[in-house]
């Protein structure tokens, strides 16, 4: 057994694997299959200030080696999350990252204020949702706005680590990462989904009712590894990597690129046990290579 534990901006994770926001709800459904305590952490479904119904269906489409989604942040709102979901999650002996999103900076600040007095371990600020018309990606594609929203949210979260989740739908992700670092982010997570589209050629209509949606799954993995590597080299704060990770080998690769922890999304749809298998495969890799601690591989890639 190797040491799989990692420390991300002061928070200890027993292993680096975290189901990504959106695929895992609040964990209730997966608890039927495995104990949540086996996970390094859980990023909860994106929460907004008030309840959101989300976009009309269909909200999902398959793509070669991946998928598109356009859920549009359906959630019960921050108060209900804090009252009914968070207390249950905090009993599960795993790190809880509360993912939050707003359509204005003020909304994000209000949500963060409400969470600041809870026992949640980390906040993941989503400035990159491609499926909502206001806020979302609009914050995450302009370095100045991304920095401003980070500063204002961090201001009300002096005691909680703030992770800012970045969009890949930008010309230069390192500009955004540097800007949120300057704004006080304790870590960044990337990549959110890549904006995509599919059309049913028999009807001439897009498959998604929202026309476009966020692409994830193995197809985006190389793109994600590249962006994690660039970002990890551009900022001093930790990077939580995600995007198409579906095996222990993928997770190791992304950590070599510079990720301190890994989120797993679409792979859970293919195999609900994916996070558990990934943890086991990472352990096997380290054992085979006689590497004592997973932390030793973070950013260990030797570029040409």
């Amino acid at each position: 057994m190797s040491d799989l534990s990692v420390n991300v901006c002061g928070v200890n994770f027993k292993n680096p694997i975290i189901p990504a926001s959106g695929v895992f709800g609040y964990g209730r459904e997966y608890e039927e299959l495995f104990p949540l305590s086996a996970l390094g952490g859980i990023a909860t479904k994106g929460t907004t200030i008030t309840r959101r119904n989300g976009n009309p269906s269909p909200r999902i489409a398959e793509t070669p080696s991946g998928m598109l989604n356009s859920v549009g942040l359906q959630n019960p709102g921050i108060d209900k999350f804090i009252d009914t979901e968070l207390p249950n999650l905090l009993k599960k002996n795993t790190v809880i990252l509360a993912n939050i999103a707003g359509s204005t900076i003020d909304e994000c600040v209000k949500i963060a204020e409400k969470l600041s007095s809870t026992d949640v371990h980390m906040i993941e600020l989503n400035i990159s949702c491609p499926n909502v018309k206001q806020g979302g990606a609009a914050f995450g594609t302009c370095p100045e706005t991304a920095g401003e929203i980070t500063r204002k949210v961090k201001n009300v979260l002096p005691d909680k680590p703030l992770v800012v989740k970045l969009s890949p739908n930008v010309t230069n992700i390192t500009d955004i990462a540097k800007s949120v670092e300057a704004g006080g982010a304790d870590a960044v997570s990337l990549i959110n989904t890549v904006l995509g589209m599919r059309i049913d050629i028999n009807t001439g209509r897009p498959i998604l009712k929202n026309n476009v949606g966020g692409m994830s799954g193995p197809a985006v993995f190389p793109l994600a590894v590249r962006m994690v590597w660039q970002t990890a080299n551009a900022v001093k704060i930790p990077v939580i990597g995600m995007g198409g990770v579906s095996s222990g080998k993928d997770a190791i690769e992304m950590m070599m690129a510079g990720a301190s922890a890994i989120q797993v999304g679409a792979a859970i749809f293919t195999d609900p046990f994916a996070p558990i298998k990934i943890i086991q495969e990472m352990n096997d890799f380290l054992d085979t290579k006689k590497i004592k601690s997973i932390s030793d591989i973070i950013g260990s890639v030797k570029p040409w």
């Binding site: 709800g25 989300g54 269906s57 859920v71 359906q74 859970i268």
Partner: peptide
């Protein structure tokens, strides 16, 4: 069209009434 199949990902929404309120 479905994602997780167990109620976590909220992909397969359909419009319903719950206590006279619209609900996905």
């Amino acid at each position: 069209r479905m994602g997780c199949g167990i109620g976590a990902c909220l992909v397969c929404a359909c419009k319903t009434k719950k206590n006279d309120e619209e609900y996905f």
